[in-house]
């Protein structure tokens, strides 16, 4: 997926392939500007005018949604695939009651009668731990954490097969964040739906996902089961990310920050896109795209992977 800007095409998502099983939770992690949100909005095809999906396919329960018309696509949105937005704080329309905004989706997709819809909203509020008395209130009467819960309730409303959660807890303080993460996991297990969880925070990803894709400069550079990726990271970028954040499970590590910034996607670096920042970069990294190193389902694109340390 590219953004057509005056300066040229920003190749925000470039050659990314992944799949999510029913009931599975996929984590996408990477610094800001790596194309994570671009993937999310591509999945629902809610792109801004400047964005184009030039090629590829997005299969949702076996159907490629890319060639679908807007009218056909609307049938999929929210009913089959819903989303918790990065800017959850501002995803509620300020002039309508929160309950009514959930009912809007219910009436559209489930076609429920008003009384049933209200009943369903009550169930959803129970599920995400919100008090019923807030159903007829306006967004500005909610706290940040409550808005986030309401957004999650809204995303669950039509029982979609998959939810895309784009940095759902980034704007919240750590305690609220933790509680909401737990809540989301509970809900997902209870309803057996798939989830794509996007975050720049390795610790959060480690907690919520079954499989992880590490994104850098519009690409997935490492992919595997969460356990494998965290215990035996292959790609130097993954290792850098891990040392940049304290681990939630194990011993405290030094907060080594990653020097530099992700590249400008108007003109990504040649060869391995990480080479300008990689401490292990060699001559071939600069000129040739790196090969894929496979260890079972776990893989990464790198010229100089470390020794396999798994037993």
């Amino acid at each position: 997926m590219h953004y057509m800007t005056r300066a040229g095409a920003v190749r925000a998502v470039d050659g990314v392939t992944f799949s999510v099983e029913r009931g599975q939770s996929l984590g996408l992690v990477g610094e800001s500007g790596c194309g994570k949100s671009s993937i999310a909005i591509s999945l629902l095809k809610i792109l801004p005018d400047s964005a184009r999906i030039l090629s590829g396919s997005i299969l949702l329960e076996g159907v490629d949604i890319l060639p679908l018309s807007e009218d056909e696509m609307r049938e999929y949105r929210w009913k089959r695939i819903s989303m918790v937005f990065q800017a959850a704080m501002n995803s509620l329309d300020p002039v309508y009651r929160v309950g009514d905004q959930i009912i809007e989706a219910l009436e559209l997709h489930v076609g429920s009668a008003p009384s049933e819809a209200v009943e369903r909203v009550r169930e959803l509020y129970d599920l995400v731990g919100l008090n019923h008395s807030f159903i007829p209130r306006y967004p500005h009467e909610y706290s940040g954490g409550m808005k986030q819960r309401a957004i999650i309730a809204m995303a669950l409303a039509c029982e979609p097969a998959i939810i895309v959660a784009d940095e759902p807890t980034t704007a919240l303080d750590v305690i609220v964040q933790d509680r909401i993460l737990r809540e989301m996991r509970k809900v997902r297990d209870a309803l057996d739906m798939s989830m794509i969880y996007i975050s720049h925070d390795m610790a959060v990803i480690a907690e919520v996902s079954d499989v992880v894709g590490v994104m850098y400069a519009g690409r997935i550079v490492e992919f595997g089961e969460t356990k494998d990726v965290f215990e035996n990271p292959i790609h130097p970028y993954t290792r850098a990310l891990m040392s940049a954040f304290p681990s939630v499970t194990g011993e405290k590590r030094e907060l080594a920050t990653l020097p530099g910034e992700p590249p400008n996607l108007l003109a990504p670096p040649s060869g391995c896109r990480f080479h300008p920042r990689c401490p292990y970069a060699t001559e071939e990294c600069r000129s040739q795209p790196p090969p894929t190193v496979r260890r079972g389902v776990h893989w990464a694109d790198c010229w100089n992977p470390p020794e396999d340390q798994s037993p």
């Binding site: 696509m73 929210w78 937005f85 501002n90 995803s91 300020p94």
Partner: peptide, 11 residues
């Protein structure tokens, strides 16, 4: 953002 959310809802 709520406009994108409204679109995502399939309206």
């Amino acid at each position: 953002d709520y406009v994108m959310a409204a679109r995502a809802k399939g309206l």
